[in-house]
Amino acid sequence: MPLEARGIGFRYQRGPWVLRGVDLAVEPGELVGLTGPSGLGKTTLARILAGYERPLEGNVRLDGGPLPVTGYNPVQLVFQHPEKAVNPRWRMRDTLIEGWEPDPELLKALSIERRWFDHWPNELSGGELQRFCLARALGPRTRYLVADEITTMLDAITQTQIWHVVLDIVRERNLGVLVISHDRPLMKHLCNRIVDLESVMSDFPAAAGEGEVGVRPSDFRI
């Protein structure tokens, strides 16, 4: 039963379209890579797939039905900057168990140490925080993971640790994963297939990435 995006269109207020006519599907047990120039809406698509944003056009289907509006979302999003994704006023233990109580095996696989539980987020490094965020997102009810540049800000060793855990869980639980990244070698290593966002936007707004033109992508009007 796939996670599907059908004809997704999105823009903020009356601004230009960030996404238009995006079709994308992730099957259980599949790792799909998503690339595309900066500013083309990869993060927006990630937020829509995980139910953080409602598309203006098209819809997201999980097992053929809509995403739940309340309650635990089987599609979990992990962000690029973990320090923004944890409450700075909570000790790490509370953040970890916010959705479920991760088992010791998962904590061990992610090298999360019990001594960190009583720390505040500002006492841990980005790599350590991201391990917590991933553990938090991998509850038993999670069936799809949207990983938006989750290891871009991390060193190679932490990146490897994190992805090996995800790969193990994908195999064990038949999880589907959307991997958003700029890192080609990483995606080649991880993903079953790699999708370019430009190629799945049937009607895409502007071929502007980081270019020589003195205009941001969002300055384009259609």
Partner: peptide
């Protein structure tokens, strides 16, 4: 370990974490 952790160099896992 850092070099071997790169995807193109084997993506080798090193357990543990930097001390707090």
């Amino acid at each position: 370990a850092l070099w071997r952790a790169l995807p193109q160099n084997g993506f080798a896992v090193t357990p543990g974490a930097q001390p707090v």
